[in-house]
Structure formats: structure tokens, C-alpha cells
Design a protein around this nucleic acid. Sequence first.
DNA 1: AAGCCTATATATAACAA
DNA 2: TTTGTTATATATAGGCT
Lengths: 185, 185
Amino acid sequence: MGRKKLTVRKIENSTFRQVTFSKRKDGILKKANELAILCDTDVSLIMFSPAGRLTSFATDGRIEDIFLRFVDRPDELRGGYYDPNVEKINSVTEAEEYQQFLTSAIQHIELSKAKLLGDRIAPENPTRIEVAEVDMEEVAPVTDESADSIRERKSVGSKEHPDETCLPMGPHLSLSFIHAQKTWK
Amino acid sequence: MGRKKLTVRKIENSTFRQVTFSKRKDGILKKANELAILCDTDVSLIMFSPAGRLTSFATDGRIEDIFLRFVDRPDELRGGYYDPNVEKINSVTEAEEYQQFLTSAIQHIELSKAKLLGDRIAPENPTRIEVAEVDMEEVAPVTDESADSIRERKSVGSKEHPDETCLPMGPHLSLSFIHAQKTWK
DNA sequence: AAGCCTATATATAACAA
DNA sequence: TTTGTTATATATAGGCT
């Protein structure tokens, strides 16, 4: 919809590609927001720019919730999350291996977080819309000292699910697991 | 962009809301695809219709990959996945509780899958584009017999990561954990 | 619910600064 | 680079089937 009809094909000129991304990113973001509001639906959008910059959007600001809703879809058409062609017992056994893997994944995220995180406070969510833009290059490496200092800070209770029962686990990985758990029983 | 300028506000008439969703869903899907191709970028889009129908899109067909890239972002602006304000030891302890939770989550998905899954084969991914549409209502309830019969079927190796080392765990929960693990060490 | 139509509203490609 | 302008291409609201 510009001066010329466009062929849908990778833009080779990197400058032009970046400019196009920037403009179209805004357009699709607007569309996603309008769709969410007009139709009162869950919409999640994640985009990485050619330079690695992240732009994300989600209805009510929780990509995790929408992704979980996606993951928990009991339909193989959704994707390849789950292969039902295994016996129950094997599944449980293998689940334990996933369990281990997930644990290490959590620790990994934890560590990379501790290493890279500054002192900034996460912004509040003023509306139903969340738009986050993050530049990889903006994440400055910090010293071991500052990483250690993170551990000194007082733990802050999560306000994200104020109506929930307090659980023994901390808010490390929110991913709305608590919310999902309610559904799962 | 129709006969009338539209106010961005929830459409109260449910029929019209559904129609609008359907049309705009196609539009944003096209935009997402064009963005991904033109700018050669990772884009992930998840939409639930007012009726609960899922429509999803992802560059190269892997929402999980893009979500993982999102999750693994070491930046608190991305969301509230991780609270660094806890001591290391507590984190590990709590990680074990997440571990347990994740295990039960896997089993839940497994069970709901076994109960609801039919005999259909997941479609191949012909292009870089993945568009999946799933209707909750289309998932017909199956009898215990048919649920049992699922366990009889022969296990099929995942072809999603053909170049990977074979791991002891099965392909229950692909979520590209294996792919992620390579990055993590 | 899906398609088609067509008048309009929007998005944006190519420029310009 | 980013931002603004403008001619055009697209998307889509309201109808109709």
C-alpha cells in the first residue's frame, strides 16, 4: 500500500529492511490491539527486528497466559508439543527427565538473570495493552559484584495474582503457572 | 477502513464481533507473514476467537522457539517471569517446587491429550509459514476404549530436529527444549 | 456461519528533510 | 539513522446472499 505494489520477498537492502520493519511493526501492533479490543479476545504477538530487538504485545499484558492457553490446547494440530504414542508408564518416566531438564532451565534463567539484571524496576501495566521493546545491545554486562548485590535485595511479593492463595514457592518463574494450576485442578 | 470510521471499542453484537474477528484475523495473519518474510524476522502470533477457536502463526512454524527466545530474554522489561530478589539457595529449593509443578503439568497435558486426541495426523509444514486453526468444539469426546487404543499405537520418532543427538527422553513435550538446551550449554 | 461486493478508511513505499 | 509527507495499495464495514 505504498507508491508501488510490493512483492512479498526478503528485502535485501538492510537499511530499507529495518525501516520497513519499523513501520510495519507499528502497523501490526495496532491491528493486534484493535483485534483484541474490538473482539474481546486473547491476542499475543512477538516480533524480533532484524537487529534482534524485541517487540511484544498481549491482551491484558500476559503473553505467558496466552502461550499457556496455546500450549494446553489438547489438539495435535496446534503443534508438536506432545506425542501421545507412548505408553503411560513410559510417559511418566520420561516426564521425570523433562522435569530435570526444566529444573535446569529454571536455574539457567535464574543465573542469566542474576548476571544481567540491573536495578531497574519493571514498569506497571497501565492498561489492557502491553507493549514491550527491548534492545539486546542495551543490556549492559554487569560485574560479579552487582550480580551478588541482587541477592541482597528484599524479596517482593508478586501482585500479579492478588486473589490467589499464597503458595510456598517464590515468584521466580511466574509464567502464570499458578493461574494454570487452578484450571488443572 | 470500511464504509464507516470505526471506534476501537468492544463490539457488543456477538455475531458482528465474530465476523469482524474472522476478517481481521485474516488481515493480521497476512501482515505477520509479510513482516516475517520481508524483514526476515521471527514473528509469533496467537489469537483466540470470541468462540475460543485458536489461530496461530509463527515464522518457520515454531511458536515454541520464538516464545523461548522471548522467555530467555534476560531483561525484566519483557515480563514478570523471574524475580531475582531471592537468594540462590532459596531459588534452588523453590525451583524444585516448580519442578514438581511442571511435572504435573506435563502429566496433565498428557492425560488431556490421551482423552481428547483422535487418530488424525498432524499436517506437514509446507512452507516457512504455519497457520493452525483449531476449534474446541471439533474435538469430539472419545470413549475410554479409544483413549486406551492411543496407547497401542507405535511410537513415532520426531522428525522436527533431525540433526540432533538422540536423547533418552521421548518427544512428549517438544517446546524446543532440546534446541534451547544446546544454547544453554 | 461463510463468501462476495464496493465505498471508504488505513497502511505504507518511495521520497524528502 | 529517525521523522514527516503523499500517492497508492490494501484492508475492511456494512450489505447482500
